[in-house]
Nucleic acid binder design. Structure first.
Lengths: 339, 339
DNA sequence: TTGCTTTATGATAGCGCTACCAATACGCTT
DNA sequence: AAGCGTATTGGTAGCGCTATCATAAAGCAA
């Protein structure tokens, strides 16, 4: 099924078909309808290899990550790779663990010679060294899951503040008044926003945020374990714990079980992200669903559009794409025993 | 960096460069060296889009799965998608959950019109309906993680029997004599092989396999929970439990904790697959590492070669690619308390 | 209507690579 | 040294698509 067959069937030239499939050109409505009909009838879809060969010369996109949560990363990769294979973008995946700013700068400079765009998941999207270097080379960047680091950078993310405040509201509505919180890694803005959402919802509910119920975590299972031990060792332990991601929430459940606490009857535990950890542990986690794969897909699409526009000499309006999140109620949260 | 520049630098024709990069042709050693040198100096790598356009016309590959373990699937997908994006194969991912044999047959027939090859992870690779339908349409198939369903089908897998028997030997060497076993889903041959490996190693160690220490599981966390409850409710409970995958092993740990058992001091628990579950739970699982992503990569490569050979009219020798596994010792297994 | 601008469509060329066949070079026999 | 077969190399065409420019059609003012 080639563009020529579609063109012949619609009685137009291949070029017109190409214009229709790309949506944005000047094509008369009648012609467009004709082409669309032919496409539907022939069940045509363009050959991405040919598109990439003919069109944008060198659409190599880098996805750089560092110290990732495995579950998060694999979802991100699946989304990005899937999109890449459908659009014939060539995805280059690299890992930059524990780079110093100078190294980041050098690596980013080198990268900017080899790729047409970069996807930056946390925590790398927070690096000033990287984004300034890429910006000065005029390489388009999409940041994943962070507030906009620069005015000229696109973002895909969810509203961490609102999501966290909804989750807190849910715990409050169940009747919890002593809610513990485990913060995420301080090198990511999402951590701060989740905490801010928690605080704001507590205040809205007339609950004082007791600082001794707030523990620093680092998004890892191990850090969750330690934070949970401290939280549950208090004489008046919280009746619910809100962990800033699923791995830490799973750790909280584990600690609770070892202390003979029943989850959720003695302790409610909620997480964030809805990675596969959430449904692997028992009881399954109440958490915030974040459409990670869809976000990766969107990030790549955004990048591709940006590169295209840049090549065409158009100015590209940076986008801040906010995805809808969802509060997923499973079995790890319930009303507190005492009330 | 195009093939022409390499050719010019090496003083040969582009065609010769192409032959060198594909390895398998008649090229004089001196020429090959020249080309290889030029490739290295210019840091050339072929443009996959151009390759797929010029070469194999329509290399669409399907990856069909059903009822997967999420962790397993995502690793598989990452491997396959990554390879696909490097080779410009177009990967089509579909999910066929709970199809009846007639539906499988119909779906496979339809599929065989649209794709040039199929990757079949478990449990679909066990389906006679699917493989016979694809075979009769002469569509190359690679089965993942299973014994060869047909003589003409390629496989990528590890030696489940040996891996399971090594793991059992390890438990025995730690001093365990009462070892519980949780079987995998009966619809997968790997389950039977893992159990057989367990049995064989027990016998080799002079241990009788007590049938009341063997429970049926289905690879899910939930089934692991139930099997573990039954196992640990015995008056003389096992001192070690070998679960046929990581999810079930994680479930065993959870049950053990709730019963106040310390892992590994009161109970050793080992898993299989080394999915990310293994390092998320605490204590981290001793398990068998299976290079899932590399296997997916190899499966795709095998398929591509097969399709290529088929188009060239060559006969393709079906391959059974056995990957090396690895016994990963972490913290969930230790000598039994009593001795 | 004419003459102009704007909009819609078509023709041509080429992206980087490989299949196919033609042309050499080489090794060996007589 | 000539003749033959095989091993190695090169030339040509084209994969399916889009950029670019050329052309045709339409819109509009005078």
């Amino acid at each position: 099924m080639t563009i020529h067959e579609v063109a012949r069937r619609a009685g137009v030239s291949p070029m017109t078909v190409s214009r229709v499939t790309h949506g944005v050109e000047n094509v008369r409505d009648a012609t467009r309808e004709l082409v669309l009909k032919a496409i539907r009838e022939l069940n045509y879809s363009p050959n991405p290899a040919a598109q990439s060969l003919a069109g944008a010369r060198n659409t190599r996109i880098a996805l750089i990550y560092s110290n990732p949560s495995v579950a998060y990363l694999s979802e991100l990769l699946v989304g990005a790779l899937e999109k890449a294979s459908r659009t014939a973008a060539q995805l280059v995946v690299e890992r930059w663990d524990n780079f110093k700013p100078a190294m980041e700068r050098a690596a980013a400079r080198k990268l900017s010679q080899n790729v047409a765009g970069v996807i930056l998941p946390p925590p790398l999207c927070e690096s000033v060294a990287i984004s300034s270097e890429l910006a000065s080379a005029a390489i388009p960047v999409v940041a994943v899951a962070t507030g906009r680091p620069r005015a000229d950078v696109c973002c895909v993310r969810i509203d961490d503040f609102r999501a966290a405040s909804e989750m807190t509201g849910y715990l409050v509505s169940l009747g919890h008044a002593r809610i513990g919180f485990i913060k995420g890694h301080p090198n990511q803005t999402a951590s701060a926003q989740r905490f801010a959402g928690f605080q704001s919802a507590c205040e809205a509910a007339g609950l004082a945020v007791n600082p001794t119920y707030v523990e620093q975590g680092y998004f890892s299972y191990r850090s969750g374990l330690e934070a949970a031990e401290r939280l549950l060792a208090r004489k008046r332990a919280p009746t619910a714990i809100f962990a800033s991601n699923d791995d830490m929430a799973a750790a909280v459940i584990s600690v609770a079980h070892r202390r003979g606490l029943d989850v959720p009857r003695d302790l409610s535990v909620v997480g964030f992200d809805d990675t596969l950890t959430a449904t692997t542990v028992w009881p399954e986690l109440t958490t915030i669903r974040q459409p990670i794969a869809a976000m990766a897909d969107a990030a790549l699409a955004l990048l591709l559009r940006q590169i295209r526009d840049k090549r065409a000499g158009l100015v590209f309006e940076p986008v801040d794409h906010l995805f809808a999140h969802e509060l997923v109620k499973r079995d790890s949260a319930a009303p507190p025993r005492e009330g």
